[in-house]
Lab assay of single mutants.
Amino acid sequence: KEYCRTLFAYEGTNEDELTFKEGEIIHLISKETGEAGWWRGELNGKEGVFPDNFAVQINEL
């Protein structure tokens, strides 16, 4: 499994977007979303897309 840590808080504006606080760990599902600048991940049981410049991939939890 791949993970990323959020660098900033983000408020999702669409139903398919994740909302998160700074410093949260998102399970990274895919970097290929069909839309440049967006990754797909899962946080707190919800799957959605989020801007990749708001997070950095990490090697271990």
Rank of each mutant, 00 (worst) to 15 (best):
residue 2 E to C: 07
residue 3 Y to H: 08
residue 3 Y to I: 03
residue 3 Y to L: 11
residue 3 Y to T: 04
residue 4 C to F: 14
residue 4 C to G: 02
residue 4 C to R: 03
residue 5 R to A: 06
residue 6 T to D: 00
residue 6 T to A: 14
residue 7 L to M: 11
residue 7 L to A: 08
residue 8 F to L: 12
residue 8 F to K: 15
residue 8 F to M: 15
residue 9 A to L: 04
residue 10 Y to K: 10
residue 11 E to N: 12
residue 11 E to Q: 07
residue 11 E to D: 11
residue 11 E to H: 11
residue 12 G to P: 07
residue 12 G to M: 01
residue 12 G to R: 05
residue 12 G to Y: 02
residue 12 G to V: 00
residue 13 T to M: 14
residue 13 T to F: 06
residue 13 T to R: 15
residue 13 T to K: 15
residue 13 T to S: 13
residue 14 N to T: 13
residue 15 E to L: 10
residue 15 E to A: 12
residue 15 E to K: 08
residue 15 E to D: 14
residue 15 E to G: 11
residue 16 D to Y: 12
residue 16 D to R: 12
residue 17 E to V: 05
residue 17 E to L: 02
residue 18 L to C: 00
residue 18 L to H: 01
residue 18 L to Q: 01
residue 18 L to R: 01
residue 18 L to G: 00
residue 18 L to M: 07
residue 19 T to H: 09
residue 19 T to N: 11
residue 19 T to F: 04
residue 19 T to K: 06
residue 19 T to M: 04
residue 20 F to C: 01
residue 20 F to D: 05
residue 20 F to G: 03
residue 20 F to T: 01
residue 21 K to P: 09
residue 21 K to E: 14
residue 21 K to D: 15
residue 22 E to D: 04
residue 22 E to F: 00
residue 23 G to T: 06
residue 23 G to W: 05
residue 23 G to E: 04
residue 24 E to D: 13
residue 24 E to F: 00
residue 24 E to K: 03
residue 25 I to H: 06
residue 25 I to P: 01
residue 25 I to R: 07
residue 25 I to M: 12
residue 26 I to S: 02
residue 26 I to E: 02
residue 26 I to W: 04
residue 27 H to K: 15
residue 27 H to T: 15
residue 27 H to Q: 13
residue 28 L to H: 03
residue 28 L to K: 05
residue 28 L to R: 02
residue 29 I to L: 14
residue 29 I to E: 02
residue 29 I to Y: 02
residue 29 I to N: 06
residue 30 S to W: 00
residue 30 S to A: 11
residue 30 S to Q: 07
residue 30 S to K: 06
residue 31 K to C: 04
residue 31 K to P: 02
residue 31 K to F: 01
residue 32 E to P: 04
residue 32 E to H: 10
residue 32 E to G: 09
residue 33 T to K: 07
residue 33 T to F: 08
residue 33 T to Q: 06
residue 33 T to P: 09
residue 33 T to A: 10
residue 34 G to D: 13
residue 34 G to S: 14
residue 34 G to C: 12
residue 36 A to Q: 15
residue 36 A to R: 13
residue 37 G to T: 06
residue 38 W to A: 05
residue 38 W to H: 07
residue 38 W to G: 04
residue 38 W to Q: 08
residue 38 W to L: 08
residue 39 W to L: 05
residue 39 W to E: 03
residue 39 W to Y: 04
residue 39 W to A: 08
residue 39 W to R: 04
residue 39 W to M: 08
residue 40 R to A: 06
residue 40 R to P: 01
residue 41 G to K: 01
residue 41 G to E: 01
residue 41 G to M: 00
residue 41 G to A: 02
residue 41 G to R: 00
residue 42 E to H: 06
residue 42 E to C: 10
residue 42 E to V: 10
residue 43 L to R: 09
residue 43 L to Y: 08
residue 43 L to A: 08
residue 43 L to C: 09
residue 43 L to Q: 03
residue 44 N to H: 13
residue 44 N to M: 10
residue 44 N to W: 04
residue 44 N to F: 06
residue 45 G to Q: 04
residue 45 G to H: 07
residue 45 G to C: 08
residue 45 G to F: 07
residue 46 K to A: 11
residue 46 K to Q: 08
residue 46 K to L: 09
residue 47 E to S: 13
residue 48 G to V: 01
residue 48 G to A: 03
residue 48 G to C: 00
residue 48 G to F: 00
residue 48 G to E: 03
residue 49 V to E: 03
residue 49 V to W: 11
residue 49 V to M: 12
residue 49 V to Q: 08
residue 49 V to L: 14
residue 50 F to P: 00
residue 51 P to M: 14
residue 51 P to C: 00
residue 51 P to H: 01
residue 51 P to E: 04
residue 52 D to P: 12
residue 52 D to F: 11
residue 52 D to N: 14
residue 54 F to V: 14
residue 54 F to N: 03
residue 54 F to A: 15
residue 54 F to E: 03
residue 54 F to R: 14
residue 54 F to T: 12
residue 54 F to L: 15
residue 55 A to Q: 05
residue 55 A to M: 01
residue 55 A to L: 04
residue 55 A to K: 00
residue 55 A to S: 05
residue 55 A to F: 05
residue 56 V to P: 04
residue 56 V to E: 14
residue 56 V to W: 06
residue 57 Q to W: 05
residue 57 Q to I: 14
residue 58 I to R: 06
residue 58 I to W: 09
residue 58 I to E: 15
residue 58 I to Q: 09
residue 59 N to H: 12
residue 59 N to P: 13
residue 59 N to M: 06
residue 60 E to T: 11
residue 60 E to Y: 10
residue 60 E to N: 09
residue 61 L to G: 13
residue 61 L to D: 15
